[in-house]
Design a binder for these strands. Structure first.
Lengths: 135, 135
DNA sequence: TATTGTTATACTCTATAACTATA
DNA sequence: TATAGTTATAGAGTATAACAATA
């Protein structure tokens, strides 16, 4: 079945990610959170990006802060806290992103045209998913 | 990135599975284990199929046994225990498989030819993965 | 000595509920 | 009253290590 295949392959993709970030010594959830920070972000927007509960982001941000990778700054709306990369955080994020990209080159045996097909189909699927298409 | 898309879509596929089996009142891991039992299987082979540690299968089998869905019988090699569906287990498995199949119809908006493309590419990816192709 | 399965335990990831502060 | 974030807690899912029985 299609779903089962998708899940197996995604598991491999996750394992790839884990391998790629392992050398940096960050637990996977922290690595994911760090990579989410392409710009200063509220706790909530991080939660949305990671598809998790905001309460969970609190812990992630705490740990990134302990490691000196981010700081929290109050936003204009003072309920909001902006999570901002420190220079060290920025630098680590760059290096990690590159490692993930290099390591993540998917499916070297799949020819380029097939990969384009795959991307198109996946895009369509994600779109359906966002629109909540019944399946 | 391709991996990220794959993971998002697989998450949706997992959620689909969860929805499909929810009416049967089995926790997800038990549902997966039950569906793995297309034939009498050793603990180890179940672990292989589920891609988990054998020690974890012990707990799954215990719970399926408590629910009267399987029994354990010693194999010819008496180290081996064969997990075998009871009539109730067989019947439940049939119904669940059907529900999963129906619910799991993936991507209704994807035309049939695209779905064929997708299946082909996924098959290739799984093959690479089994062969341990560097990625 | 290697393999099957089990036990006891512990870990990772994550959510829920109740709370505080601001809006 | 509704929203952002936090705290404390709890749960699901799963692995590790040590072990017993069999090969």
């Amino acid at each position: 079945m299609l779903s089962r295949m998708l899940i197996r392959i995604a598991d491999r993709a996750r394992a790839n990610f884990a391998e790629a970030v392992a050398p940096f010594g960050l637990p996977i959830p922290l690595a994911r959170a760090l990579l989410a920070l392409h710009e200063p972000s509220s706790m909530r927007s991080i939660a949305d990006f990671l598809a998790c509960d905001p309460s969970y982001v609190t812990g992630l941000a705490d740990q990134l802060e302990e490691r000196g990778l981010v700081t929290r700054q109050p936003g204009a709306d003072r309920r909001i806290k902006l999570v901002i990369l420190t220079p060290a955080g920025h630098e680590l994020r760059e290096r990690m992103a590159e490692a993930v990209y290099d390591h993540g080159r998917f499916a070297p045996t799949i020819p380029a045209d097939k990969r384009v097909q795959l991307r198109e189909i996946l895009e369509q699927l994600l779109e359906d998913q966002d629109k909540g298409v019944r399946r």
